[in-house]
Amino acid sequence: MLEIKNIYKTFNIGTINEKHALNGVSLTLNDGDFVTVIGGNGAGKSTLLNAIAGVWPVDSGSLIIDGQDITGLPEYKRATYLGRVFQDPMTGTAATMEIEENLALAARRGASRGLKWGITHNERKKYHELLKELDLGLEDRMTSKVGLLSGGQRQALTLLMATLKQPKLLLLDEHTAALDPKTAAKVLSLSDKIIAENHLTAMMVTHNMKDAIVHGNRLIMMNDGKIIFDISGEEKKNLTVEDLLMKFEEISGEEFANDKALLA
């Protein structure tokens, strides 16, 4: 499904801020894999997702989705294959556009956009049903501007937009980190539901080790721009947070430097 072959990325080359963000990451995802990604601050988790999404080109290595090499494709072309939800609820939606218009934008991901109406009558009916399933009351506010929604509502909408047109790969980049615990739990269970119902392949970056263990069928841990631990199946299910911390210290030789992950 997704094949990442030995990718490297260095930011600010030749300056005092030079940062080797990805140091030879290789990863193969199988169809239907739901991978959680954990690691300390600056480990390269978000950088890995951005590399897949094509926010910038990688320095070397290659990215292949379903046999097609996407290494040379710009971000907007890769969008055909990807659904994305971001940490900041503001990032995933267009605030000055209506809820239904945002959905209509997402429905045309990967399609050419011409002079047909931006949203059709049938679409509106379909979106009404889909929004109803979210159970946030958004189906009655379809012509409201997205800017009026709360962070949790926006993330739920972004999730719907990311999966409206079935992506080959869903990228969730700490998409619950900016929400209050109750809303975060709701958005997380919604993510689970959508991924299961649509049999999606997904990657979810999280700071929360417990979430990383409970969700998905596979877990990878990153440190210093490398994947240092990759576990799946029964073995993953039986993990504890203590196991993960020990594993981290054992492999990296340092303490897990992320208070947020430990306190969560």
Binding site: A79, A95, T96, R108
Partner: peptide, 28 residues
């Protein structure tokens, strides 16, 4: 009419949130 079309939508989305637009496959 134009800003109600698919193409018009891409301009409105780009003006509002270019990152989101690219993530939704729009050539900003």
């Amino acid at each position: 009419w134009y800003f109600g079309t698919e193409q018009g939508f891409t301009i409105r989305a780009t003006g509002c949130n270019p990152n989101m637009s690219r993530a939704q496959g729009i050539n900003t």
